[in-house]
Amino acid sequence: MTVSDENMDDLNMDALDALLSDVSNGPALQPNEGFMARVLEDALAQQPMPSVAPPSLWQQITSIVGGWQGMGGLVAATCAGFWIGINPPEGLPTQFDTFLNTETSVSFLDNENDDGALFGFGWDMEEG
């Protein structure tokens, strides 16, 4: 159809444009609330679960020792042990003394070579 074919009874193009404009700018065709709820229900049902990042190596280690509190205790104990190692309290034999065999030993028995007493005690135990 060309312009010359247009029927004079047809709605003219300006009127048609006005009609289309009215419809376009007019109130939109709104779906009802029940339908919107159904679409949202579908959306939530199809939604992937939130992805959770795997724990880091550090997080795994701290969780083994009981979290940051456990890790704190472990660090404190390590520091204390290290300090005792390099600066031991008086009377505590050091590895160095042990190596030179110069450590002092204390016996609570009157005569540590008196094995008889100990054996005698042992016999007593056997005889009841």
């Binding site: 159809m1 247009e6 029927n7 009874d9 047809d10 709605l11 003219n12 193009m13 009127a15 048609l16 009609l19």
Partner: peptide
């Protein structure tokens, strides 16, 4: 154009 024709009766 077809729409204008179809709307003629309702003009």
């Amino acid at each position: 154009r077809a729409l204008a024709q179809a709307l003629a009766p309702a003009r």
